[in-house]
Design a protein around this nucleic acid. Structure first.
Lengths: 204, 204
DNA sequence: ACCTGAACACCGTTCAAGT
DNA sequence: ACCTGAACACCGTTCAAGT
């Protein structure tokens, strides 16, 4: 087939197909995108640079808009809770994306806006500058970790019967995967705010 | 080559080669293991079942011994700090392993021993049973997340010049990758212990 | 500018064949 | 029991060739 009158393909269509495939199967591939869009594999490269580039475009799509919240007038703990929950909502809609975006430099403006809001709240909390980066990492761990739990195996620990009694007792409590992930996130957020307040450098 | 008098290969040799390759490059593959051990790719399957199985064997090797600590007589916060630090020491020696072991059910006895100790400490702290699983997830996030930071890009956030001032201020503080990861872990551990203490259900 | 098919260097896994 | 080579179904990326 020669060049069609209007393009068969676009970066947007590729990103949509890839994100759908991630939500469905946990990953994407060039052959599967091409098959779904009824196009040849090599033509994808007319619209995106490579695999990494697709992931960056997905990150931008997932983190747009909801992350620049009017939060400046709230007390720091309220502001922090609000932004962290909004950040989690973005990624919890696509939990299988987490392993693909881990450990890559964040350059997307939407995501950076969320970190800016969090850094401001942490300054208001009285954290010294060099601790703010640490706290941002902790928040990242909390949000991404508890989102990953949404797709973790239902049984996260499988102790053999008769051993590890305290672990067995803890695992007896009934739960769903969603409830478990949500509970861990909310406990983590409460512990984070109260724990930061308890550090000596906080001023209130 | 027919069957040799003494085996050329063993599960141990495969695990060693795979773990070395993970430490060096962040991943392993059957062709590269076979090349390093000077053996054919298909002969690996005489000693291990598949790729997942290799990862499970690596997990068992990395988490053996240091994780059943005599911790029962310590106050809960001391016990928790000790076990969490020992857990972190295991994985911080092989930070590039983290993405490979994330989100798989833990069955290794060594690793389960660490979780048992942590569950006991959390019981002593007064956490209700259904919160203990949440707290174990938080600890996992903290340990694995801060280990992954050891191999993260030196620049975790790249805000464009002139925007995101609070983030820029936070990033100005000088740091090494190791120092940054260590600082985040220690802040997280302090926040975790103090934050747990601040929750209403704790009794001391 | 945009699509195609062929080619290349990589993967994990299976299996018949050797001793 | 343990190794081999061939085969298969997958990957990501490049490139000359079409219009």
């Amino acid at each position: 087939m020669p060049r069609p009158r209007s393009p068969l393909l676009s970066a947007e269509a590729i990103v949509t197909a890839a994100l759908d495939m991630i939500d469905e199967t946990g990953n994407f591939s060039f052959p599967r995108i091409a098959r779904r869009l009824e196009v040849s594999q090599s033509s994808l490269y007319n619209h995106i640079q490579n695999r990494e580039h697709i992931i960056e475009l997905i990150r931008a799509r997932v983190f747009t808009e909801p992350l620049s919240l009017p939060v400046a007038e709230l007390p720091w703990d309220e502001a922090l809770r609000t932004v962290v929950r909004a950040y989690r909502a973005c990624i919890a809609a696509h939990p299988r994306l987490v392993p693909l975006i881990l450990a890559q430099t964040v350059q997307d403006a939407g995501a950076l806006g969320a970190y800016e809001s969090m850094a401001l709240a942490l300054e208001q909390a009285g954290l010294p500058p060099q601790r703010i980066v640490s706290a941002l990492f902790l928040i990242d761990n909390l949000v991404l970790g508890s989102a990953m739990e949404l797709t973790a195996p239902a049984v996260a620990w499988a102790p053999p019967p008769g051993a590890f009694p305290a672990l067995q007792r803890a695992l007896e409590a009934p739960h769903t995967v969603e409830g478990r992930a949500e509970a861990a996130f909310e406990l983590g957020l409460a512990v984070l705010v109260d724990g930061l307040r308890a550090q000596e450098f906080t001023q209130n």
